[in-house]
Each structure stands twice: as C-alpha cells, then as structure tokens.
Write a protein that binds this DNA or RNA. Structure first.
Lengths: 250, 250
DNA sequence: CACACCCTAACGGAGCGTAAAAGTGT
DNA sequence: TACACTTTTACGCTCCGTTAGGGTGT
C-alpha cells in the first residue's frame, strides 16, 4: 500500500490529479482512519488504464463509464475517438499549412498585416471544400473523408509541386512538338496517372467525382478558382495527356 | 453599419463570440445611444484577422497584443505557433497510432481491457524517446525535432514495414550465401542506405548520433528494447550490408 | 516542538454556450 | 400591445495548478 505521494511518483501523475480522480469517482483508494488515501497495486493498474484513455483524448467522465462496464463499450469508443483525432490532426495540418504560406508571403516581402490574408484564404478554401462535395457520391465522400487523415501538409505541398512540375513538363513537350505516342510522352502520361491515383486511390467512384469536379470548374466559387490558378491545364494539354496515356495502355 | 446579428451572419461568428471579443477589448464597435453595438466594415476586417489568428491557435489575449502593435510582433508569433502546432500534431499522430495498435490487438482476439496495454506501451516508448536524446549532439537534436513534425503515423508504419521487409530480405540473402558484392546485394545496400537517410536526412551529425544510439543498444531501457525486438539485426547482417554498401560505392 | 506529509475547499483559466432578466425599435 | 432584437450578468464545462487553512505521524 502506498501513500499518495509515493503512488504519484510511481505512476507519474500528480498528487492533485489523484485527488481529482478520486473526487470524480474514477479511482477511489482505501482510507486510513485519519482519512489518508492508501493506494494498492490494483489501483495502479486501474490508473494506468485511466491514463491510457486520457492519453488518447477521452474525457474523464466518459472514462469512468468505460471502465465500469468492464470494457464492453471500449472498441466502439476507441474507433470513434480515433476518427475524431484523425479529423483534428487533419485540421491542424491545415493550420500549419496556413502559417507556412503566411511566412512564405512574409519572406516574399509583404510585411504588414496582409500576412493574415494568406491565412484567411486557407480558411476560406476549406469552407469551399464542403462545397465541392456535391460532385461526389455518398460513398465517394466517405472514402475521401477516410483518406483525408493521411494528408499531411508536407504531403500536400509535395503533391502540389509535383503537379506544377508535371504541368510545366507537359507544356514544354507540347511546345517542342513532341509526339503523344513517344516514350517521353508516355512517361509523362504515367506520372499523370500516378498523381491522379494518389488522390483517388484507384477508386472508380472517387475518380468519377473528380472528373465531374474538374469538368465543371467554370462554375467553381471565386476562392477555389483563385486557388486553382497556378494549375492551369489547357485543352491541348488534356488531349496530349489522354493520347499519351492511351498509347501507354497498349 | 450592421447590428450585431447581421454582422454575425456576415462574418460567420456567433453573437456570443462578438460579445466576448468586445468584453476582452479585442473588437470594440461603436454604440447607439441605447447601447446597441454597431459594426463597420473596418470592424469586419479586424474580425477577419482575429479569426485568422484564432484559427491557427493563438489565444485571444495574445491576439489583442499582436494586433495593437501593428503587426511588428507577428512574424515571431507565427513561427512560434507553427512549431507548437507541429509538435502537437506529432503527439496526436502518436495517439492515433496507439489506438490503431489497440484495435489491431482487438482484431487479433484479445477482447478484455488488455487492449489498453497497447496504448500504455506506446506512451512509454514516447517517454523513452527523451531518454534517447543523450546520444545526439545539441544541433542534431534540434534537427530531429524539426523533422519530427513530418512523421505521420502512416509514414512511420510504412517505414517500419520497409525495415522489416529489408531485414527479412537481407537474412534470406545471407542464408542463400549471396555474395555481398553481387548486384542483388548492392541493391539491398541501396535500400538500406535510403532508409537510413530517410531518418537522418543525410545530416552527418544526426547520422553520428544514430550510430552511437545503435552501438549502445545493449544499454537501452527495457521498454525500448522490447519495442526494437522485431528489428533484429545480427552482426553478420551488419557486415553483409556494410560490404554491400562499400561495393556499391565503387 | 518541529518537519514532512495528508486532508478539504475554492479560485482560476480559455472560449464561448446557454439561460435569465430587462430594455429597445427597421 | 406584441414581436424580434438588444443589453448585461452569471453559471457551466474540462482538468487540474495553485494557494490557503488546518489536521497527522512510516
């Protein structure tokens, strides 16, 4: 049996936290006649479980319920919490990206509060993401949601750069009068295909939605159009790439 | 001039939040004789800035200060906040990873509260990461910290798998009596080098620290050793790989 | 007696949500 | 008079950190 301070050191939580858990009914140790708390090894096990659930962001009140019902409700709670965390992490990624863009604008010379414009843009682009949903079927939306957790800001930037480079390369090939069936053109086609599949994951429903989305880009909201500005793909480029991809398939 | 409700709709924040910002001195609109708040377009601009800073996680009290001093303190605040967010995102990634492992354990059959053991393990491995610091120089630590933001749980899992596969392949090559200077062995060496550089980023200081860390693995804490259990690399494998990498260099 | 440790009670903090009570007015 | 808005005041929520005041005892 341990007094509260020893137990605190042993478990790595503060004395105050133990008081708190006690008052919440989460972890109720025995008491001496004078009212001193006495913790056992079983209490230690329980505390570790509490800490584990707290670590993954489950509120203390809910933890009590989860531990009472001997763990039958755990699996559902875990997967729900995981999804919530994935979404949060995605949002944090967006916030980080927003700051990076603001910092980039700063280096480019803008010194005043116009910095924040960059961040505001990012926020608004986000709001427009909901808007883009209408192009996708229900199931496609769900799949995109699920994959979104993996989109780190670093990954997004990398993909953006890859697209910009690819578009530039295709443009160059067009200017050079490259044959769409040549090996070079087919290589471009493959890069294109890979980038698209990086988003669609090869899923036909997502692919279809993406197709609709791009086809209707004339009707995108202002913000989204501005955002897509750097990725300018002409009709000629489309034709070139689809021919190249067609040639590669044979 | 807008009344508070119109202004709220216009800007997308709630009436209550506007009250709050007013009381904090963040956004103080004009008032009618009767005390009604009247917001202007200038107020809208300011509110957008507030929302932007709030979006990236800066506390309201600090926002007031940042906006008063006409933005001179902004750059520093932005980069500080970015680093804080990157760290948080990394921690969330660990929490997500912990849940995924717990869920994997669940599918593997364990149904009781042993689920939480998995999460507890992840927490403890983390604590041991601080411990591993002593092998790295100050500058190397800083570089690792900076890169850590990019380590999503997905990436970590992928890298783990790649290591396991590589180790298995090397083991197989050893068993088959493969010559370390053969093309096959050199390919293994290249894969090895790439994985190492994925962590070190090619930085010599980090590489050095990593070397020390592995050399002293006999003295790692218990938890870390258990974690490293699956990655068992024998002396023979080391020799094989270093010969292969040496051969590839020529 | 003194020192180290224990107890309970209560405020604070971040950012509003949510009534409650009461005044205003296109 | 009634309806839609507005105002201020204040408690609630989360997880403890931090005094404050006062008992206990390896």
């Amino acid at each position: 049996m341990y007094q509260i301070q020893q137990f605190a050191q042993l478990s790595g939580v503060t004395v105050r936290a133990l008081h708190h858990y006690d008052r919440l009914g989460l972890l109720k140790p025995r008491r001496t006649a004078a009212g001193y708390r006495l913790y056992s090894d079983r209490d230690l096990e329980r505390l570790e479980q509490i800490v584990a659930l707290k670590f993954i962001g489950i509120p203390l009140k809910q933890i009590r319920g989860l531990l009472e019902r001997n763990g039958s409700a755990l699996p559902a709670a875990l997967s729900k919490q995981r999804r919530a965390l994935e979404e949060k992490r995605f949002q944090m990624g967006r916030a980080i990206k927003a700051i990076r863009e603001a910092e980039a604008a700063l280096e480019a010379g803008r010194r005043d509060t116009a910095l924040l414009k960059k961040i505001i843009e990012v926020i608004e682009v986000q709001n427009d993401m909901d808007w883009a949903k209408k192009y996708y079927s229900e199931t496609a939306q769900a799949k995109i949601e699920a994959k979104r957790a993996e989109w780190s800001p670093e990954l997004q930037e990398r993909v953006s750069r890859q697209w910009l480079e690819l578009i530039a390369d295709v443009e160059a090939a067009l200017k050079a009068g490259e044959d769409p069936t040549s090996a070079k053109a087919q290589a471009l086609g493959r890069r294109w295909k890979e980038l698209v599949e990086g988003f669609t994951g090869g899923d036909p429903q997502v692919t279809e939605g993406l197709g609709k989305l791009w086809a209707d880009r004339a009707n995108w909201p202002e913000q989204a159009q501005q955002w897509a500005q750097p990725f300018r793909i002409t009709g000629e480029m489309w034709q070139f790439i689809s021919k190249a991809m067609g040639a590669a398939r044979k």
